[in-house]
């Protein structure tokens, strides 16, 4: 089973996770920039984070045979902090980078005017740079947030078919599909979605334009949820081709809209005593 996790925050994960993901079949992933749990206070903090997503994290992933790409943006939560908003002016010089395959995560958190501005500005940046957009749907007031998101996308210069609407569930999938966008589902241990509910959504909705991710981060989450969905699909009667479509071909097609996916990472060759990330001081 080859797996592409289209949304996972590896900055918050360990090398053990990389190893387990490779063993489970993960060969590629996309790391969206997001909130770090601790609020940032300046654009410089974003710069260091973006640089890590363009440098150190792809290096770590490659040690474990996994192709690493990223999406960059000012996230919805911090779009409300005037100290952080100037990073919008810096995004153009980051969005030209080779491994940036979308603008994201953008979208709504609390649905404020500041979030309206950041979302619209960044949809325009995506259109300007020939990139698709990864749009987070809010955790609170999700359906209203989705509707407002779709409205803003329709008013933007970006083709709705170049938008991935993420963190969907049973209550939002139908309207999200009606927008023409791609459909992302985050599978969590307790919240958002679980494997069995995901299989039920796939049975009802089909596999077209559906992406499944672990969205694993610094919170309670599981980087192997993609594999568990694949196994649950097979147990529920889906074929291997269906699994490959959802877990590999659909994310490749969506992020491939950027023209920047490079998936040819060599397998891990020389795992130094099981840990090739040496510390320069061991």
């Amino acid at each position: 089973m080859r797996i592409f996790d289209p949304h996972i925050h590896m900055t918050s994960r360990t090398t053990d996770d990389y190893r387990a993901m490779y063993a489970a079949g993960v060969r590629a992933l996309v790391e969206p920039s997001f909130w770090l749990g601790q609020p940032r206070t300046s654009p410089a903090s974003f710069h260091d984070y973006f640089d890590a997503l363009l440098g150190w994290e792809p290096f770590r992933a490659a040690q474990y045979g996994i192709a690493h790409h990223c999406t960059l943006a000012l996230n919805p939560k911090e779009a409300n902090d005037p100290r952080c908003v100037p990073v919008l002016d810096d995004l153009p010089r980051y969005l030209v980078k080779d491994s940036v395959v979308a603008v994201g995560e953008i979208g709504y958190d609390s649905m404020t005017p500041a979030e309206d501005h950041a979302l619209a500005a960044q949809l325009q940046l995506a259109a300007d740079h020939g990139l698709p957009a990864l749009v987070h749907t809010p955790h609170r007031d999700k359906l209203a947030g989705l509707r407002r998101t779709i409205d803003v996308v329709r008013e933007s210069a970006l083709d709705p078919e170049h938008v991935l609407l993420d963190h969907l569930n049973e209550t939002t999938v139908k309207e999200a599909a009606g927008s023409g966008g791609w459909l992302g589902f985050s599978i969590y241990p307790d919240t958002k979605m679980d494997e069995d509910r995901m299989v039920a959504v796939l049975k009802a909705h089909g596999t077209d334009k559906v992406l499944v991710n672990s969205a694993a981060d610094w919170g309670r989450s599981d980087p192997l949820k993609t594999r568990k969905v694949g196994d649950a699909m097979l147990a529920a009667g889906f074929g291997e081709d269906d699994v490959d479509k959802v877990l590999w071909r659909n994310p490749v097609a969506f992020y491939g809209l950027s023209g920047r996916l490079q998936l040819d990472v060599p397998p891990p060759a020389d795992l130094h005593e099981g840990n090739s990330i040496l510390r320069g001081g061991e």
């Binding site: 654009p43 810096d90 010089r93 030209v96 080779d98 491994s99 023209g259 920047r260 490079q262």
Partner: peptide
Amino acid sequence: GTASDNVAPAPWELRFAAAGR
């Protein structure tokens, strides 16, 4: 965060960034 950070780059610099793809 210096003022010159976001001046439009020369065309060849955009090529420098995009060489991998």
